[in-house]
Write a protein that binds this DNA or RNA. Structure first.
Length: 267
DNA sequence: AATGGGACCTGCGCGC
DNA sequence: TGCGCGCAGGTCCCAT
């Protein structure tokens, strides 16, 4: 799915496009993506409310509605929000707005989760989240790494450890910090911890600047691709030459996820 | 505590 | 052209 930069991009565009607008009607095309309450209640309770605020927590989008409820959307692997909506075969939920346009929620793989709740802070997913990289000090980050024998890359993907990083940016940040993804987290030198801390934030920031990485399903709110994929240094570049040393990029599997590295730069 | 596997789904690209 | 396989920005759950 969209990782932190992709969700942040969508959040910023939603702010410009639909903040303050009224949702006149909701059509649930595929009820599978509605986790709570029932699809019927979901439609009923949202209809007629105004979007008062939109925020992002890690990879989760949260709409605050005028009826006091919160709509939480996790896009998972293939979720998309499109405005103005074009109603494709992947459209699972349609939000009709008072201006006559629609906000479409699309999701090819049906992994995404939409929840309408009284209090988003009580969501189990939210309560388990670790800090976001931007809200973290270097000291705290070093502290967190202490005693962690896990491989550093799967650890970065663990949302209870730090939140917002996904598979693309974990790979990219580790390359930029010249750290092998299989290294035990507690084996990093102080210099490496520092560099990793900096590169995680830099990578995420750059990705936000370019409006995210469109590798497969992710698109911006307008439906356009994000522009960051062409700057990827290792992700999805198996067998292509390392941009620094020409060594072919290697793909391995760690924690069940495709992992890309330069075996020379990240020895 | 940590790691591995599978599950949830659909669709795409690849090799034959 | 058609088929089967492996793979996919995520997370959860169970077994070891």
């Amino acid at each position: 799915m969209p990782e932190l930069p992709e969700v942040e991009t969508i959040k910023r565009e939603l702010d410009k496009a639909i903040l303050g607008k009224k949702i006149t009607k909701v059509s649930v095309v595929n009820p599978k993506v509605i986790k709570e309450p029932s699809p019927k209640e979901f439609q009923r309770q949202i209809s007629g409310s105004t979007i008062k605020n939109i925020s992002r927590k890690a990879k989760l989008l949260i709409f605050e509605l005028s009826n006091g409820k919160f709509l939480a959307i996790h896009l998972k692997m293939s979720g998309q929000l499109i405005y103005p909506g074009k109603n494709s075969k992947l459209t699972r939920v349609i939000f009709n707005l008072s201006n006559g346009k629609t906000l479409d929620f699309n999701d090819g793989r049906l992994f995404a989760e939409l929840r309408l709740v009284d209090d988003w802070q009580k969501l189990k997913f939210i309560q388990s989240l670790g800090p976001e990289p931007f809200g973290l000090s270097l000291e705290k980050f070093k502290e967190m790494l202490k005693g962690k024998k896990t491989k550093i890359k799967p650890l970065l993907l663990d949302q209870t450890f730090v939140s917002g990083i996904g598979n693309i940016y974990a790979n990219e940040a580790l390359f930029r910090a010249k750290i092998n993804p299989a290294r035990p987290a507690n084996s990093l030198s102080e210099k490496e911890e520092e560099l990793l801390f900096v590169e995680i934030k830099e990578t995420l920031k750059e990705a936000i600047t370019h409006k995210g990485s469109s590798v497969d399903q992710y698109v911006q709110l307008s439906g356009e691709d994000g522009g960051y994929a062409k700057y990827h240094k290792v992700y999805d570049r198996e067998k292509e030459p390392c941009l620094k040393c020409k060594t072919p990029i290697q793909r391995i599997v760690l924690g069940g996820r495709g992992t890309y590295l330069c075996p020379h730069c990240q020895a």
